[in-house]
Write a protein that binds this DNA or RNA. Structure first.
Lengths: 340, 340
DNA sequence: TTGTAAGCGTTATCAC
DNA sequence: GTGATAACGCTTACAA
């Protein structure tokens, strides 16, 4: 207390109260051994003064902010929010708070916010990139802040990186439909040149080509990775003269949209159309018939990003740079059928 | 530079380089006027040394962390992610980074994370409460950290608070259906005793009672505020012997679920059932027929929370405590019809 | 207008 | 094992 204003007590107050020096108290707090007697004295003083260490002072001394940032393109996708959730769960218990920065699918803003985070002295960054030229990465690396790339790799930039084997996801989904006798197989994609969307599309093309099937432009519809994009894309596909007999929808949000369209058009799954969606759709097991989907282990990926970032923050670069590519898990349910 | 390790330059380096004192440089940086000559010298030194002020040191000196937190129940709801987005957009330009804390619908974790944020010395907190006993609020208020409640009020706890007029939303939606001649009107709600869900349910009941209509328990189905809960609730309603002719779905995520169920069951909107949903559903204008809904101005609410929090952080308590109750905007589209 | 120096709360390096 | 003291980078009286 000072001048009538109640101030939080400091380590100095604790030391005085316990009849010890600040050095000793600091050591105890940081886990070094002290004599039983002093331990008791300190603990009591801490309790009585309701002492909480000042993180900012700690940070100044250690040149750390005890915070990490997740910089992402847009908060409207299930993928991104799921990542925030698992990264926060992983890093908060380790003493790091998670700052969220959204660049609104805007490359210039992505750079601005990158600089902001550097100035803010975050201890680490998880980046779900928007721009693919790698400028953000260069800035972060120049500042020596540990960085984990999530969801996308960026060409010619060596970083730790956690991604899905997107091509495999596209390939396996499509191959399954081919195995079931389908030839008129459509895909709903994200924007052209989008990293994950391209990977999934390439898998689709590879499977089609391998099977000697023709790739029809009309059967490749962009749904912009969002609910209404998926809805619109599905509507376009169903209005084609020759409606596809099967479809692979390459992300979660578009799957919801496509599903709404299919139901709205009164198409019967799988009689009229076989469907494979993407990501662990909450509805997958609720809708009837259950939906087939390629599962991206979002939870594992986010947790892994958090853990790897923590190791880098702690200075463990033994396996740097590390790229972890996750395999999708395929779930085949009754939403797909054998074409006879 | 020191001992071969490249360190970020400090205000001291800038002062030395410019041939001035740190005090002068600090003043310039903080917007006080200096002589033209010194200004030029400082600017040049800053540029040459690529100087960025150290936020942590600044924070220690000013007893500020330049960060605010948003503490919320669960990241899986559109409402919450939308709030993060608008709060971040508002406060980042004002120099505050936004820390996200999720309590996973767990009251004990909510208290733990509240304490964490207090220890972390965030400069302000936006709370979307989970527990309704107000213990989190007491902790925050005791620590003198500015607090804005969002989405819910808590009884007997005076705080700044931004909410929707939930009862009005429920009332107007239901009343509209009544005006159209419906008598068998159902509602899909969140969990019992949930603040916003109860408000919306009360509005429903009020409208029904005012109109002299009987309230049937079967017509009040809990959908847990999530997609699959909405789906399941809708399925239950449609299996009733006497299916309702109209329905009000009291949040966004359940609206998606209910819609999937309706489409799956091949019910025609509005011929078989009239539907009013909730929140600015991306699909509202995409689905056919367009969906009627009660719009909660989430964007406005989040921005307002950010602005008000900033004012409190700046010490402006002129209108404390302030409760802002927003009116829903009703959008009536072709998803509802006159019952003849 | 500019310079000086104390201090924010911690940790680390010495001595003892 | 413990204590004294010097940093960490910045702001702010106060002095010049």
């Amino acid at each position: 207390m000072k001048g009538g204003i109640i101030l939080a007590s400091t380590i100095r107050d604790v030391a005085a109260r316990a009849g010890l020096s600040v050095g000793t108290v600091s050591k105890y707090i940081n886990g070094k051994t002290v004599k039983e007697n002093t331990r008791l004295a300190i603990e009591e003083a801490i309790k009585e003064l309701d002492f909480h260490p000042n993180n900012i002072a700690k940070g100044l001394r250690n040149a750390k902010s005890f915070s990490v940032a997740i910089l992402l393109p847009m908060l409207d996708s299930t993928f991104c929010t799921s990542m925030i959730s698992s990264i926060e769960s992983t890093l908060l218990p380790l003493g790091y708070s998670v700052i969220v920065c959204e660049c609104h699918n805007n490359a210039e803003m992505e750079l601005r916010k990158t600089q902001y985070l550097i100035d803010r002295m975050v201890d680490g960054i998880v980046l779900i990139p928007y721009a693919s030229d790698g400028k953000q990465i260069e800035m972060i690396q120049k500042s020596n802040i540990p960085l984990i790339l999530l969801d996308q790799e960026i060409q010619d930039h060596a970083t730790d990186c956690i991604v899905l084997d997107n091509e495999l996801a596209g390939y396996e989904s499509t191959q399954r439909l081919i195995d079931l006798g389908h030839k008129d197989i459509a895909i709903i994609t994200g924007s052209p040149n989008h990293y994950t969307s391209n990977g999934r599309l390439n898998g689709y093309k590879k499977a089609m080509t391998n099977a000697g099937l023709t790739i029809t432009d009309d059967y490749i519809q962009c749904g912009d990775y969002c609910i209404d994009g998926g809805y619109e894309a599905m509507m376009r596909l169903c209005k084609l003269q020759k409606r596809p007999t099967a479809i692979f929808i390459s992300n979660y949000d578009m799957t919801i949209g496509a599903y709404l369209a299919i139901n709205y058009l009164r198409l019967k799954i799988p009689d009229d159309i076989s469907v494979i969606g993407f990501d662990n759709f909450p509805l997958a097991n609720v809708v009837n018939p259950p939906l087939s989907f390629a599962e991206q282990p979002t939870n594992v990926m986010g947790t892994e990003a958090g853990k790897l970032l923590y190791r880098r923050i702690c200075g463990d670069y033994s396996d740097y740079p590390k790229t972890i590519m996750h395999k999708p898990t395929m779930h085949y349910k009754e939403s797909i059928r054998q074409l006879t």
